[in-house]
Nucleic acid binder design. Structure first.
Lengths: 113, 113
DNA sequence: CAAGGTGCATCAGTGACATAATACAGCGCG
DNA sequence: CGCGCTGTATTATGTCACTGATGCACCTTG
């Protein structure tokens, strides 16, 4: 049967993204080192590095070799915008279809807030 | 960068589940044979069989050896209920948190219907 | 310079996934 | 019965994402 568990590096990636957006890792500040974060999360440093890499590629964090990775100014808002766009374009459409198929009314769900 | 492509057998499984709920494969009727469906989808018969297996295990389809797999009566509603429950319990909570973080107002999305 | 911290490149191992080639057991129909 | 269709069990192979261990280059600090 196997399973389909979300890869660790993606979980970490989402977790970090949320932290950046919410200001836990404020702009201009340093991200936890790959080793520190790995130890904290019980993961492998390389796996953490893989999660960090995407932010670096997107220009959301800057690497100072031998020092660490810093959150770029405007990263939080930039990240929020791109994630928002991704969500609306990719996930929401099929999500809406699926909810309709399951007989779920989105407006009803908001009442339980 | 790798990918994160959903396994084929899970895609097929979702596709079939949707078809059952929507009545494309009506109750009492026969599902496409593993070979036929495999040829149609460009997949391997074994992969299709793997997708079918879950429905069989959940008692949603019945196997008549040498004949084919039939959709059990009440399968559509049963499937809808279980999927609905899954969605509300597992996906929606974190989805709600995530939407809030991204500054997305669910009510706004309904306007685009 | 020496020590300890950073990220990162390289190589390797593991397991899920998909495909393939057969073979078998059961059923329907001519 | 014989043919063709069902699902399924078996075995094998190949691929690839994921994870991990090791070592290196770079920086800061004392």
């Amino acid at each position: 049967m196997t399973q389909q568990s979300r890869p660790v590096y993606l979980k970490l990636r989402d977790q970090i993204a949320a932290a950046i957006i919410e200001g836990v890792y404020a702009e201009g500040e340093m991200l936890p080192s790959v080793r520190a974060f790995a130890a904290e999360q019980g993961a492998n440093p390389l796996t953490v590095a893989k999660a960090y890499q995407q932010f670096q590629a997107d220009g959301l964090v800057e690497v100072q070799r031998g020092v660490g990775m810093y959150v770029v100014r405007g990263a939080a808002e930039k990240l929020r915008r791109s994630e928002r766009e991704q969500f609306l374009a990719r996930e929401w459409p099929e999500l809406k279809v699926r909810m309709k198929r399951l007989g779920i009314d989105p407006t009803e769900l908001l009442a339980h807030s």
